[in-house]
Amino acid sequence: MSVNRYCVRTYKQDRRIFPSPMARLGLGVLGILLISLPFWAGAYWVHVACVCGVAVVTTLGLNLLTGYTGLISLGHAAFMGIGAYTAAVLAIKAGFPFLLALPAAGAMAALAGVVVGIPTLRLKGLYLVITTLAFQFIVEHIIFHWDSVTNADTGLDLPAAALPFITFDSKEKFYYVILVMVVFTAFCAKNLVMSRTGRAFVAIRDRDIAAEIIGIPLARYKLLSFVISAFIAGVAGALYAYLVGHIGPDLYTFEKSIRYVAMIIVGGMASILGSILGACFITLLPVGISEVFGPLASAYPALATRIGAVNVTVYGLVIVLFLLLEPAGLFGIWIRVKRYFTQWPFTY
C-alpha cells in the first residue's frame, strides 16, 4: 500500500510535508504549469492568477488564526490595508525599496495585530467577532480621513516594485514575485502547523481550558497567532498594492474581510491546502460566471443588468449549496477523491 498522510509507518514519514511520491509528482507538474503560465496564458489570466495569489497568501494567514487557533476575525482586510498603506507611504515618501517595504508592511500590520490581540485575549466567539469588526471600521475610518498620509479617497500611486537587478514593471514579471510569496507562505504555514506552536494553536481551538491545564500559555499563543496572521495579511496587502499600482479606501473594506472568511469556510478550516483551494475558488467563481454570462451581456446589452443580477444569484447559490452539501469544504472533497484512488478497490 502506498504511503500517504493517513497510512504512515515511521515518524520520518509523518513529518514529511508532502508524504507520498504521487503528491510530490503532482506538485512538480503544478509547479511547471505555474512557472510557465505567463508564457501561454495571456495578460488577463496572469492578472487573475496574481489576484488569486494575493488571496491565497491572505487566506493562509487567516486560516492560522481562525481555522487553527479558533479566533474569528472579521477585520482581516483592515490588516491588509495597514500593510498596503505602510508599503505605499514608505515607498513614496521615504523611498523605501520593495524588499524593505514588504517586511515593513508586515511588521506594521503585526503591530496592529498586537494592539487588537491584547484586549481580545479574554474574548471568544461573538465578542471577538464584534471586536475585530470594530477594528475593521476604525481602520477604514482612519484610511478615509487621514488625508495627509493616505490621501483620503484619492488614494496613493505606488512605483513599480524593483530589486537591484530587475524592475517588476509588468504583471507578467510581478506574477513571479507573488508566486514566490505564495510558495514561501504556504511552506512556512505548513511547517508552523506541524510544529509545537501549530499543535498549541489547535489545542487552544479545541478546548482552551484543557490546553491551559496541560501547560500551554494561552495569552502568548493567542497573541502569537494574531501577530503571525496580521503579519501575513500585511505582506499580502503590500503585494496587492504593488500589483494594482494604486490603493484607495475601497480596496480594504468589510466586504473584503467577509470574502476572506468565506474563502477559508469554502476551502476548509484548519487546512493549508483548503486555504489555497478556497482562495482560488472564491476568486475564480465570479471570473468563471463572467466567462459564461459576459458574452451574453455583450450580445444583449439591453439585458445586461438582468444578467448581472443572475450573476450575483448564481454566486450566492453556489456558496450556499457548498455549505449545505459539503461542510468540510473543498479540502473535504479533495480528501474523498484522494481516498477513493488510494484505497481502491475498497470503499473505506
Binding site: 488577463y44 494594482v244 451581456a297 455583450s298 448581472g308
Partner: peptide
C-alpha cells in the same frame, strides 16, 4: 460597432480585472 460589457460591481479590484479582460481578451 460591437460592444463588450464587463461587470465591475463598482469594485476597483474587479474593475482592474474587467479592464485587463477588455484589453487582453476582447
Amino acid at each position: 460597432l460591437e460592444l463588450a460589457v464587463e461587470d465591475n460591481k463598482y469594485d476597483p479590484e474587479l474593475t482592474k480585472v474587467a479592464f485587463t479582460k477588455l484589453v487582453d481578451r476582447h
